[in-house]
Amino acid sequence: MRVKMELIYKSPKGNETTFISEEMLAGKALVLAEDIEKTGRMKDVTFIDPKENTWNLKELREFMKGIQTEPHNIKVYFDGGYNLETRTSGLGCVIYYEQNGKSYRLRKNAKVEELESNNEAEYAALHLGLQELEFLGVEHQTVEVIGDSKVVINQLTDEWPVLEEELSRWADRIEENMGEINITPEYKAVSRKENNEADRLASQALKGVEVSSKIEIN
C-alpha cells in the first residue's frame, strides 16, 4: 500500500505548520513518521491512501504488523497469446510476493476458446492474475502490474482511449475486480524479453500444456 503523510510539526517556540509528503510505500512512511516522532516535535500525523482512507500512526503500525502474515510486495506479470487459425488463446501469469518473511513465485496458465483477438487474450491474462490474487487472499495492497502489451497498459492508465467494445468490457471488468479487493495497481510496460516467464506460460497453454505451481524462492 502507498500513502501520503500529512504531518503537523510544532517548533520549540510553539509555532506550527503542516507538511504533506509525496506518495510512498506505507512501510517507508511509517519509518519516517516514527523517526520524526522521536524529536518530540510532531504534534500529529495522518496517512492517506490512494482511496482517500485515512490512518493514524497506531492504525498504520497495526496494519503493517498484520500485513507480514499476508501476501505483500506483489508483482504480477501477465501475457496472452492468440492463434488465429484455431481461434484459441493462451493466458499466462506469474506472481511474485512475500509472506511470513519468505518469498514465493506462483505460475498459472490457461487455454480458452471464447476470445477474438490477441488484445482480448492480454486482458484475459491479467484477469487470470487477479483471480490468483483473490485466491491468495490479497486485499488493500499496492500491486505492481507488469506486461508487454502497450494496448492493455496504456488503456488501463488512460493514456490511450478504449475504442473497441469488447476491450472496454475487459477494462471495466479489470477495474471492478481491483476495486472489489481494494488493489491499487502500479502499471509497468516492459519488453517481451523482460516478460518471458508469462510469455512462455501463454505459449505452453496454446500447446495444451497446463501449468499451476507455487514455489519458495531465495
Rank of each mutant, 00 (worst) to 15 (best):
R2L: 10
P12H: 09
K13V: 13
G14V: 11
S21N: 08
E23Y: 07
V31A: 15
D35R: 14
D44R: 14
V45R: 02
I48V: 12
K51V: 01
E52A: 07
T54K: 15
E59S: 07
R61V: 05
P71T: 04
N73K: 11
K75A: 06
V76Q: 06
F78S: 12
Y82E: 04
L84A: 09
G92D: 07
V94P: 00
I95H: 03
Q99S: 07
G101S: 10
L106K: 05
N109T: 05
K111S: 14
V112G: 04
S117K: 01
N118D: 03
N119T: 06
A124D: 04
A125T: 03
G129K: 03
E132I: 02
E132M: 13
L133M: 15
E134H: 03
L136A: 03
V138L: 07
Q141T: 02
Q141S: 12
T142Q: 04
V145I: 15
I146P: 00
D148S: 03
S149V: 01
Q155D: 12
E159L: 11
V162M: 08
V162L: 12
S168W: 09
R169D: 15
I174L: 15
N177R: 13
M178Y: 08
P185M: 09
Y187M: 01
A189I: 10
K193E: 15
K193I: 13
N195A: 12
N195D: 13
E197W: 06
R200G: 13
L206I: 08
K214E: 15
I215W: 07
E216D: 11
